[in-house]
Simulated scan of single mutants.
Amino acid sequence: MHPPGCTAQARASDAMNDRKGDVSMPFVDLHSHTTASDGTQPPADNVKLAAAAGLAAVAITDHDTVAGLAEAIEAGKEYGIEVVPGVEISTVHAGQDIHVLGYFIDWKDETFLSRLAELRRVRDRRNDMIIERLQALGLEVTMDDVMASLMASKKAEETVGRPHIADALVRKGYVANMAEAFERYLAKGAAAYINPPRIEPITAIQWILEAGGAPVLAHPGLYDQDDIIPQLKEAGLVGLEAYHSDHTPEQETHYTALAESLGLTITAGSDFHGERGGVVFHAPLGARRIDASVCKRLYEQRGGRP
């Protein structure tokens, strides 16, 4: 019997065996966001897009929340797409935002849910601090403006992030588009950037392992902190997102080699966030993909299994 959560890989293996390699291994996109965090598409739409892109599986990895998983998993049954239950946890190390992906987590575990709720409270405080700094800069923007820019009302277990603030700045005419909002105000080093104290990536790895998941470092090329990756592996990190929409080809080659040297699973993700102002944020779903055997390997590594 094939393990739960890896039927996409199992079907791929069966097809390859039955047809002696005449069909290509199906692919998976292991990084996507929905309206449960800062994406613009409902979870079911991500699954539908995954089917349209010819994927065997898609991971839903919203920021500090698992609120979109139930809808996505139901949609997966409708579209015949495997949904990998995931999350992207926000952490900070040496003043740098570091994101840790967790796959095949027990997304109903009460301890894990409580920990995510605390992370969302930190995020809410960060958002308030950003608004205060924007107002100090003379921009008349409030959290009410931010919430008005959302496609739908947010539930308590969903998150509000910088892209939502950027949307409000565009709507009020302070910037022309999201890229300008981040460049002038919201990106690291910009005028209204705030980075409050958060948990360390090692803590996020521990939380994911304790929730029965497989921790993977998201888009390492954005951090310039390769020196911490061996330390994270010692803490239980099992994978590295070598293929990401914001990585250069050189970075993808570098992180593939680094993952191989450390014995880490190589993953890939588009980091799809939907479309804003006619522009797809990061990349279309499926733009970064990897063969479905990675799904099985992550499943086998969940909870710190060797």
Rank of each mutant, 00 (worst) to 15 (best):
L101Y: 12
M16Y: 12
T253C: 09
P4T: 10
P249S: 04
T35D: 03
I266K: 04
W107L: 03
N127S: 09
T256D: 08
S293H: 12
T61C: 06
S261H: 10
T111C: 08
K48V: 05
D22N: 13
V141S: 04
D226I: 04
G173H: 07
V83P: 03
S24N: 12
D227C: 11
A235N: 05
E132D: 15
K188N: 08
E200G: 05
H254S: 03
P197L: 06
D128A: 14
D22T: 14
A51R: 14
I229N: 04
S90Y: 08
I266G: 03
G21M: 08
V160R: 07
A176R: 01
D62S: 02
P196Q: 00
R11A: 14
V66D: 01
D246G: 02
G76Q: 04
V28S: 11
T7C: 14
M1E: 14
D226G: 14
F281Y: 11
Q9L: 11
G304M: 06
L137I: 09
G173M: 06
P196R: 04
G213N: 08
R125N: 11
R126C: 04
F27V: 13
I81D: 03
Y103I: 00
E275K: 10
R19S: 15
L258A: 08
G161N: 00
A52Q: 15
I130D: 04
E300S: 14
R276V: 09
I208W: 08
K108G: 10
T91P: 03
C295S: 13
W107Q: 03
M178A: 07
P230Y: 05
R171H: 10
V92Q: 12
S149A: 14
G269D: 01
T111P: 02
M1D: 14
G80H: 06
R19F: 15
A117H: 13
R123Y: 12
Y79F: 15
E210P: 07
A50L: 07
G277K: 01
L55G: 03
V47E: 05
A156D: 10
Y185W: 11
T65D: 00
W107R: 03
C6Y: 09
T265E: 12
V160W: 01
P284D: 08
A292V: 14
G68M: 02
L55W: 07
D124W: 11
A268H: 05
L285P: 06
G239L: 02
L113F: 09
V160N: 02
L222I: 09
R120V: 07
Y185I: 00
A218T: 05
A218K: 05
A152E: 15
G138I: 05
A50S: 09
F27M: 15
G236E: 03
V92D: 11
V141A: 05
E241W: 07
A287T: 01
D144R: 12
D22H: 14
I266A: 01
A235Y: 09
V87N: 02
H33Y: 06
Q225V: 11
K77A: 15
A72L: 06
D14N: 13
G304S: 10
A53C: 01
L119M: 12
D227A: 15
F104C: 09
Y255H: 07
V58W: 00
R133I: 06
H99E: 10
L101F: 13
L30W: 02
T203D: 12
P230I: 00
N17D: 13
V279I: 13
N46R: 12
R120Q: 11
E118S: 14
E82K: 02
A44C: 08
A53L: 02
V87Y: 06
I130T: 10
K233T: 05
L240W: 10
A214N: 04
E183G: 00
